[in-house]
Amino acid sequence: MQKKKSGIAVAVVLAAVILIVVIYDFSAKKKIFEDTDFAMGAVISQKIEASGGEKIAEEIVEKIKDVENNISWRIESSEIAELNKNKKATLSDETVKYLKELLDVCEKSNGQVDLTVGNLVNAWNIGSENFRVPEENELETILESVDYKKVKIENNLVSVGANQSIDLGFAGKGIACDEAKEILQKHKAEKGIISVGGSLCLYGEGVFNVGIRNPLGDVNDYMAVLNIEESFVSTSGNYERFSEKDGKKYHHILSTETGYPTDNNLLSVTIVCQSGLLSDALSTACYCVGYENSLPLLEIYNAEAVFIFDDNTVKITDGLKEKIEIKNDGFELWKEN
């Protein structure tokens, strides 16, 4: 009798152990569709947990290409190209919506980011083979054309100043992330991690572990991990795109005050918030205005941020305090913020 009981006990213990291991292994291996593609001059990486993940991923890439075809001034047939050419154009509801939201960021940042920065971007061509360093007086003339206040929107009719041209490069990837989320929602996907050239759409329940690129390391090197829930994340950094001339590096975040690459003590700014467009636009804005001036801006938009400075210190906003782990000893978190 006792012998039998002990046999059952052994069997129960073993069965429990095996069950736990199997469940653990199974839960770790849910079916996830992964995809890599190109759009907006960037790599689109997608991980989607849903039935029909492949179809959803396809739809997202198509949508991002559509958005690019509407808002990239580099594409001759785009709405923005038409506006830049004719200084007046009737635009789609979608594009008007993006413009309005971005004009608001331009206003709140006192023009430190400005969507009429097209001529300036074009004069430098940083990161492309047409890169050059413009003359000082050339920059002065160009800066006169940079003023978001001259952009007028009346219903769908949009006009810009005589010499102005619009460049939405500081928000395009974030806009793409917003569109991706909408498609994930429409198809009731369980989870989605969409990267549009490094700007992220994190969709679904649970916690996402997001590495923040080490501004001093190579592309796969992250210096901290954010443990955050569903949101959008974008980083602007001086390592992203740059050109070199006579041993001097010129990064792509241009100052609307000087016309030169923004020169401050920041290596990168990462934004976490509930809008892709805002996460992207605010990362550029906060990089440009610096830490102190970023705080009111972040408050307006209910956004959180991680600032990495050139002395390898890191400052974070209150909402991320419990959610960040520094993974690289070379970086130090400011304690008193």
Binding site: A28, S45, K47, I193, S195, G198, S199, L200, L202, F208, N209, V210, G211, I212, R213, V219, N220, Y222, V225, L226, V233, S234, T235, G237, E240, T270
Partner: peptide, 10 residues
């Protein structure tokens, strides 16, 4: 094996 992180923001 599972990645330590889900994505890198850059």
């Amino acid at each position: 094996k599972n990645d330590n992180i889900d994505a890198i923001v850059y």
